[in-house]
Computed example of a mutant assay.
Amino acid sequence: MQASALIVIAAFLTSIVSGVFGMAGGIIFMGVLTWLLPAALALALHGVIQFASNLWRFLIHRRHVVWSVLIWFGLGSVASLGFFSLVLFAPTKFLVFLGLGLTPILVWLPERWLRLDASNRWHAIGGGFVSNGLSLVSGVSGPVTDLLFVNTTLNRHQVVATKAVMQAMGHASKILVYGGLLLGAAAREAIALPATLIAVAASMAGIMVGGYILHRISDAQFRSSRRWIVTIVGAAFLFQAIRIALA
């Protein structure tokens, strides 16, 4: 019951963060689930709840979605899913926390190193492949997809809306790869189905609250704040990975 309550609360609070910044919330929620559950089960449950959360975020901001970007990004995601389906991979808590800790470093890369533009089809395809792969390994890929928007002229609403669909693709991939675990006894012991459904509803409510806040901040606040938020979160999870490695 305590684990279920924590998951529901985390689903709500982290969805608020995602609703505002289009990232960071998923990283925090993945960390909470990995702390509470076995790594593979955490990836599966994260996929289900975050898929619903991002789908809801898409519905709220759907008029801002840039569909031309998503076509090529989707091709890269499908290619990545096909590749990782052929690779035998067993996620562990160490690998998940390491991925959660290191991925935020990407937001600090100098723009001149990776001048990516989501409107460039090859950048979008490559971003889809890498993003989806990281999602299957560590559960999240927000900082990767964020790099695709560094050199675009899209506003904050377009970024949040388009990234919602991008991230939903990654979560759908996790469901396809790890979702079968949710039907096993371990999943039923870890979290009851009603709690999962409540967590999905809580994530949707959090997205609505985040969307309300998003309308009240400027583009400058949006771009500067999320870099620091994801960095602080990443540092905390990198510390956790080091603790596991030294244990």
Rank of each mutant, 00 (worst) to 15 (best):
M1L: 12
V165W: 09
M169Q: 11
L154T: 08
L197W: 03
S68Y: 05
L238K: 13
S119K: 13
F239C: 10
H157W: 14
F222R: 06
S135I: 06
F83A: 15
A205H: 07
T231Y: 00
L36N: 08
L148I: 02
S224F: 12
F129G: 09
A186W: 00
A161V: 08
F237D: 03
G206I: 02
V159G: 03
L136P: 02
W67N: 13
L86Y: 10
R243T: 14
R156C: 08
T153C: 10
M169K: 01
I27V: 14
F97A: 13
Y212I: 01
V160W: 08
G133L: 12
F97K: 04
I191P: 01
L193W: 09
A11P: 11
I175A: 05
H64W: 14
F58Y: 15
A220N: 09
F149D: 01
G101C: 08
T92D: 09
A11I: 07
Q240H: 06
G133D: 06
F12A: 10
A195E: 02
M208L: 09
L88G: 05
F29T: 07
Q240Y: 01
S77Q: 08
V78K: 02
V137C: 03
W108G: 06
T231D: 03
W108N: 10
F51R: 01
V96H: 02
R188F: 11
P143T: 12
G128A: 07
T152A: 11
